[in-house]
């Protein structure tokens, strides 16, 4: 990896003894201070995760009314929440709906967005400026506005009777689309065009060049865009709240539970989501490192 090499040269030049001691001290300070602040910020970001993890093992206290609410402090240890994930009514259905919605929205947004990114980076035509602006505007629109405008439209065209899966997917594709375009565009702009020219020089036709050179090079950007879409969609509450009608996605379920009993199983699902994504991302990273090592 190029950056590793750069890091190494940077460390070597740092090790040169010729520098006066005060500058060494400043260097040491800036080196470790920044890293320390960074680590503290990371710890801050993990505090609620730790809480969610702990509360997933907490026996929820029963209140006087017989309702249970798990949002209090840690009570006593139990495996019970983990063995009864689907017990709270509708919880597992909401997770299933969320998965269906976010997978559908991710596929549609990634395809549409990738095509748009190719058009915007690779082709010149009248109206590119306007197109770029139209792609940018949804990102500059607060979610609450996007949700309410979609609902206003659904009501106006009489679609408010079918609010549910379809309307949620429509809304999610909308806010994922711009992020896909921006992510894939960044990747395409950073690509070395000489590789494609070389393929053409070696008598590859346009389709072969695209399939064997362009697409594999663009793939990391497309995968990153799809992952981003999936996580934005799976976690979305605000836009979904406007467009879901009676359907309940996982974030809507949590929101509903907040208002009455809060089952501890929600913390279990939260922990599982965290663990799965962590394993996935780490595995991807290890795979990438192996491949880099194999190449070099």
């Amino acid at each position: 990896m190029a950056t590793d090499v750069q890091d190494r040269t940077a460390t070597e030049s740092r090790a040169q003894p010729a520098r006066p001691p005060r500058r060494n001290l400043a260097r040491w300070f800036s080196d470790h201070l920044v890293l320390l602040i960074g680590i503290l910020v990371l710890v801050y970001m993990f505090v609620p995760i730790g809480y969610i993890f702990a509360l997933s093992f907490s026996q929820p206290p029963a209140s006087a009314t017989g309702h249970t609410s798990a949002t209090g402090q840690f009570e006593s240890f139990t495996w019970g929440n983990w063995t009864s994930i689907c017990d709270p009514e509708g919880l597992c259905d909401s997770v299933k709906l969320s998965l269906e919605v976010s997978i559908t929205a991710t596929v549609i947004a990634t395809i549409l967005g990738t095509l748009m990114a190719f058009a915007l980076v690779r082709h010149s035509f009248r109206g590119r400026g306007v197109s770029n602006l139209l792609v940018f505007l949804p990102m500059a629109t607060p979610e609450v506005v996007m949700g309410s405008s979609l609902l206003a439209m659904f009501v106006a065209v009489g679609m408010d009777s079918i609010l549910g899966f379809t309307t949620i997917v429509i809304a999610h594709v909308l806010f994922c689309l711009s992020f896909v375009v921006v992510t894939v565009k960044a990747r395409l702009q950073g690509m070395d065009s000489r590789l494609e020219q070389a393929a053409m020089d070696l008598y590859a036709n346009e389709w072969q060049t695209f399939r064997l050179i362009t697409l594999p090079l663009a793939m990391p950007g497309i995968v990153a865009a799809a992952l981003l879409s999936f996580s934005l969609s799976f976690d979305d509450f605000i836009v979904t709240n406007f467009t879901a009608g009676q359907s309940v996605t996982f974030p809507l379920y949590i929101y509903g539970a907040k208002l009455k009993d809060f089952p501890a199983q929600l913390f279990v699902v939260g922990t599982i989501m965290f663990l799965i994504s962590f394993v996935f991302v780490t595995a991807g990273e290890i795979y990438r490192r192996r491949r880099v090592r194999a190449w070099s």
Partner: peptide, 20 residues
């Protein structure tokens, strides 16, 4: 990875745990 990871746990859950 650590920066992105908390992102994958529902933000409502994380906000509710801040409440706690």
């Amino acid at each position: 990875v650590l920066v992105i990871a908390p992102f994958f746990t529902s933000f409502l859950l994380r906000t509710i745990s801040w409440h706690t």
